[in-house]
Amino acid sequence: MELEEMQTREREPMIVVSRMSHSYEDEMGNQVKALDQINLTINKGEFVAIIGTNGSGKSTLAKHFNVLLEPTEGTVSVLGMDTKDEEKLWGIRSHVGMVFQNPDNQIVAAIVEEDVAFGPENLGVPPAEIRKRVDKALDVVGMQAYRHHAPHLLSGGQKQRIAIAGVLAMNPDCIVLDEPTAMLDPMGRKDVLKTVHALHKEEHMTVVYITHFMDEAMTADRIVVMKNGHILQEGRPADIFKQVESLKELGLDVPVAAEVADKLRKDGYAIAEGIVTDKELGDALCLSY
């Protein structure tokens, strides 16, 4: 029963991008097409990773999900609301929260809990309700102990978790993270990824996760690969990472296990396709050994 429920929810679209292009004028006055004819559907409850090199258009795409940018052509709709409809602007933004790359430049207040309250305050939520939401959000990201701290004394990973709590307190259905771990150390990266997975599993949040770390992307339900403003491929991590060479040509990394499996296969060894993790490679090797 529960499984069925989850499956129906997953089939409902959260974000639908249809034949969408985005161009802008650069400093020299030239028209630059950052996104070209994008079609993409993100379903409720999904965890989608978007990968691509710098300049592939992945951040530009993400900014369309909560109307920080509007399409030049085509449409983006969030829960059926067209992002070009000005009346729906704040509705969309309260449904889709966004976390950015630089942990320092998205924290507004000088005290952690006051910063988490910033979003709901903007939405005009009553004080008692804000208090509840802030406490819950800080619990979810495991930062309750730091609620009276000044943000500049926290580590990068802690700051990103505060930013995530700030989004959570707005009670969104979907969270978009634009390279949230690019500026963090390995410990911070692990903490942030763990937090995002907890949101996905326990809070049933739809997650769009932009990254160029493949070990993070491989934990997603689905991966979207972008290049020069196009979507090159999308599919399960196993399907994406079996194309070792084309990913490398794009300038992207591949998980070590996937690369080893690919090379063994090329050398004529019978190794199953779709290996991504160390465990999968271990299983495959033990079977044939």
């Binding site: 998980p255 070590v256 160390d278 490679l281 271990g282 090797l285």
Partner: peptide
């Protein structure tokens, strides 16, 4: 000390643990 080992070393360690 709060630091990782490289992915390749992680893999070889894991495979050894599996008896390879």
């Amino acid at each position: 000390a709060g630091v990782d080992v490289p992915p390749v070393s992680q893999l070889t360690a894991y495979l050894n643990q599996r008896g390879l």
